[in-house]
């Protein structure tokens, strides 16, 4: 799990000064069956140039909605997405220009490719939309950068003729063809075989090193976050509950939720199994949003520290977009 950590070169604290993509007090709400679901419930997050940030959380925690909102595919209910210091505008021209900067890679490469388009057409679509010159040249170089060499061998293939890893490389090439500054990758390797996973991760790190590409990697896989990310943000029920440099957050987690997530990894000595209701974004509990399932509160440790009443009743501040290690937890605050 540690072998790729040496390839990390960017200093996380230094890169945050040149923030590229930023979420400020972002809220996204949906109405489902008459009830309001607060999918993203106040998130501050920043992504520096050349930085890779992992957004970790269980399914349904709002991490995909956050990613879609950062891409401008979803409009925030309140708060704003900022790119290059400017708030994102949702006019069709402004969005189109934004698309050249921030690109998307989805989990399932089979679904991400139109089955009736050849590799060439799939990769050429972006350049064509944005009327980039020398389309064929752009496509060839994007395929080569995504590790499909020689590109000519793949141009006329259809997605179903490729392996899963090759397909994901085509999807990445389609994003790279626009020369973006940021990749938002939603579970980029979750549907791939273990052997292919490493290749795609190595590719993303190489793209960061060669092209200075930033990436927000959405995942439920802490091992993936460890391997690829400079910083990690742990999301629970629409809010980031802990964030910081990946070594600190994953080796010395402060939030009980992060501790529970880490404890179920195979190498962990003891296992914390969360009890209670699964999180429901239409009914976010008062106090700390995690208190109903918190193992620290349940075991009485919070009461020892004298914070159990605050856990149940006192709302926590929204974490700022900081590069330093921080956790939204009364117990962690009290015990240091």
């Amino acid at each position: 799990m540690t072998e790729t950590t040496e390839t990390r070169t960017a200093d996380p604290v230094a890169t945050v000064s040149s923030t590229l993509l930023e979420a400020r007090d972002l809220h996204v709400e949906f109405t489902s069956r008459g009830r309001r679901a607060r999918a993203v419930d106040g998130v501050n997050l920043s992504l520096g140039a050349g930085e890779i940030v992992a957004l970790v959380g269980e399914s349904g925690c709002g991490k995909t909605t956050l990613a879609r909102t950062l891409l401008g595919l979803e409009r925030p209910t309140s708060g704003e997405v900022r790119y290059g210091g400017q708030p994102l505008k949702y006019g069709s021209k402004a969005l189109k220009a934004y698309r050249r900067q921030v690109q998307l890679v989805l989990q399932d490469p089979t679904g991400s490719l139109n089955p009736r388009q050849t590799v060439y057409e799939a990769v050429a679509e972006g350049p064509r939309i944005h009327r980039m010159p020398d389309e064929a040249e752009v496509v060839n170089s994007a395929l080569a950068r995504a590790g499909l060499r020689p590109p000519e061998r793949f141009l006329l293939r259809y997605p179903h003729e490729l392996s899963g890893g090759q397909r994901q490389r085509v999807v990445i090439a389609g994003a790279l063809a626009l020369n973006p500054k940021v990749l938002v990758a939603d579970e980029p390797v979750a549907s791939l075989d273990a052997s292919v996973r490493g290749e795609i991760l190595a590719l993303m790190l190489k793209l960061r090193d060669d092209l200075g590409l930033s990436a927000l990697v959405v995942t439920h896989d802490l091992g993936l976050a460890w391997n690829i990310a400079d910083r990690v943000a742990v999301m629970y029920l629409g809010r980031i509950v802990e964030s910081g440099p990946v070594e600190q957050v994953l080796t010395a987690p402060r939030h009980p939720y992060t501790q529970a997530l880490l404890s179920v990894l195979p190498e962990s000595p003891e296992r914390v199994v969360l009890t209670g209701e699964p999180p429901d974004p239409t009914r976010i509990p008062g106090g700390c949003r995690f208190h109903a399932r918190c193992q620290i509160l349940a075991s009485g440790k919070a009461a020892e520290a004298g914070v159990d009443a605050r856990c149940r009743g006192e709302l926590l501040d929204i974490l700022p977009a900081s590069a330093l290690s921080q956790a939204a937890c009364h117990y962690a605050d009290a015990t240091g």
């Binding site: 891409l71 595919l73 069709s92 969005l95 189109k96 698309r99 050249r100 690109q103 998307l104 989805l106 989990q107 399932d108 679904g111 991400s112 490719l113 139109n114 679509e125 972006g126 939309i129 944005h130 999807v171 389609g174 626009l178």
Partner: peptide, 14 residues
């Protein structure tokens, strides 16, 4: 509902 529709949107297609 397919991902390639989302991908096409994310590429800037109207």
């Amino acid at each position: 509902g397919q991902d390639y529709i989302t991908t096409a949107r994310a590429k800037g297609l109207r």
